[in-house]
Amino acid sequence: MSRVVKVMQMQLINRWTFLGVPAVILVVTFLLSYAIWVIVPGDGRVYSGATQAVLWYFLVLGIQSMTMTFPFSQSMGVSRRTFYLGTLGLFAVVALAVSTIYYLLGLIERATDGWGQNAQMFALDWLVGSAGVVQVLFYFVAMVALFMIGFWFATVWKRWQTRGMLVAWIGLGVVALGLVALTTWQGRWPQVGTWFAVQTPLSVTAWTALFCAVLAAGSYLTLRRATP
């Protein structure tokens, strides 16, 4: 267990990577959005999708923490399992913190009438009706999903290099195409549409969590035989 904590400490030796960069992205995107709201006068509601920026950084972070830190952790006598638990554990903590910040900023946003500019950045219409816990969880699983996608692809790359990447992408393409073909052939598109329409923030969160679990399991199984 203590070595798992040490992996977390190792990932935090350069504080910028897990803490500094996300914080800077959050602050800078908010300030830029705010500047735009002020400079560009709009009628009615103004929106900003800048909250996504941090999420995309987490995809990159997933790739980095695998490709850069895994080979080094091997020379530090860290088992693959310990590396995996430490890295994911640390990310989970960071993601939970950022999710909570998003939720709190959403509350402030609504209380201040959209930062005084009738703007919407954190309190998404679709989400604000749900319980606070659901909102936090939704952000959390979205972040974990992106991190895990990056991490898993990087692991596939580490283990099988170009060949693995090709197989993974072609495989994903074939599966997606197969699903589309199957739906079309069975004439199920209306049902699919209905299914999407009835999803609630809670159910989307649950589905994403399931997706995360699959990615997490896949990453671990891939990592178990990866070499630095």
């Binding site: 040490k6 400490q9 030796i13 350069n14 850069m68 080094f72 630095p228």
Partner: peptide, 25 residues
């Protein structure tokens, strides 16, 4: 302890960071 001849280090590390990591493990 086995440090490879072509050991990879995290790109965002400074030399001192690598030693600090080793002190942990």
């Amino acid at each position: 302890c086995f440090v490879r001849e072509s050991q990879k280090y995290p790109d965002d590390f400074k030399a001192g960071h690598a030693l600090k990591a080793a002190s942990l493990f």
